[in-house]
Each structure stands twice: as structure tokens, then as C-alpha cells.
Amino acid sequence: MSINLNRFNRVNRKKIFNRIERTHKTAIPQAPKRPPLLHPQLDISALTDIFLSKFSASSSTYQSIDCISLVPQLVLQYTELHNTNKTLVTNLQSLLTLDKSPLDWPDALTLSTPPATGEQALGLSYATTAIAETGSLVLCASKQNPTTVNFLTDHHIIILREQDIVPNIESMWKQLSLSAEHMPRAVNIITGPSRTADIEQTIQLGAHGPRSLHLLLLAGD
């Protein structure tokens, strides 16, 4: 089982392109112009309301907060609500991107730093932006927001600033302004907890990822 992978790829690539280009009018592909596309328009003045109604429809819950310093107590309350052990994985101890002051974590919570290992019951992350059209939170993988926190914990709490909500999927990409070579390793568009309907088409939450998703919406300004 030893193939020269480089050569193998070169030969196959050429064969595949020959077959594709046989049908094209121009031998050398020119940069084509994609036809313009329509985007669904939303009532900009009601973005938060639209977002929250779609978000709730995905079996998620939310709380509005006006100050980031409330987060530790709310996280503790959430563990009590779901009757889980009080272990939290997050890299937002100081939440520097959101606020300058370090957070005051209660002793009852055991904090660990990412990556998540599957042993922590809760994960805390922040969403870069959110989509009103679908009620989705958008998380970019980074040192502060590692992907394992989003998927390996039993319950996921996400912080979002109200002013970061955008109307539709397209405006979300625009907001992130992504370009090759500078891509976050992963962008996760999250709409509700993990779910499956693979057994008798009955929806069951918590298939492999979090069993619940909770949003802390930080009020604007």
C-alpha cells in the first residue's frame, strides 16, 4: 500500500480536469462573474425580537443582562437549574474582549481552561455575531473560544452583545469579513442544542453535543 501520493494526485487531477474542460467553451478558465443573488429582507428595527423568537424556536433559552459582571452568578444558577456538577470550562475568565474588569467567579464553581475534555458539565463562550433570520449564534474558533467547548460539554452558555445581531446569513459573513489565509479554523453557526431524529423520527435533544443551549444577551450600549 505505498503510492506516491503527489504523483497520484497530479495524474488524477489532470484526468478529472480534462474531462471537465471537454465541456467548457474556453480552455483556460477565466474568472467568471457570479449572477447577483437576492437576500431575504428583515425589519431592521425589530432585529432583536426576530432573533429571539427564532432562537427560542430552536429549543434554546435566554436571559437578558445589562452587565457582564452578572455572568458568574448566572452560570452558577444554571448548574442548579439543570442539576449538574459545578464544573465549567472556559477561556473567558477575564472576558477582555467584552469588558475590562475581571470577573468574580464564585468558589462553588470549578473552573478549567480549554480544551474541553468531556469531563466538564458546562461550557461558556461568546458569539461574534448572531443571525436574526435563523436565530443562530455564530462562534469563531480562537484561543478564547476553542471549538471543543461548543461540542464536548453537556450544557453550553453563550454570551452575545445585542448590537452584534445582523439580519441574514449573508450579512453575517460580511460582518466576519473572512478571506483565505486568514480564516478562523472553524466558524460554528449554532442554532439550538444537539439533536437527533434518527430513531423513529422522534426528536431527541443531546445526541452528541450539548443537551441544552442558553444565551446571555448583553443589552446594547
Partner: peptide
């Protein structure tokens, strides 16, 4: 916009992920 609605009747699925390469120097996982 048409995929999940046609497939499972959801406006969008729980997870839509854009994966763009191996972990970077700063990344803690991946």
C-alpha cells in the same frame, strides 16, 4: 436556505460549520 427546509423542515440545522484548515499556532484544539 433551501437545504434544511427541504430535508428536515428546519430553517437551519443545529450546527452549520465552516472548516478551513488545521489548527493554528494560537488554537487550543482542532
Amino acid at each position: 436556505r433551501v437545504l434544511a427546509r427541504s430535508a428536515t423542515g428546519q430553517p437551519i440545522t443545529s450546527y452549520t460549520s465552516l472548516l478551513s484548515g488545521p489548527r493554528g499556532i494560537e488554537d487550543l484544539d482542532g
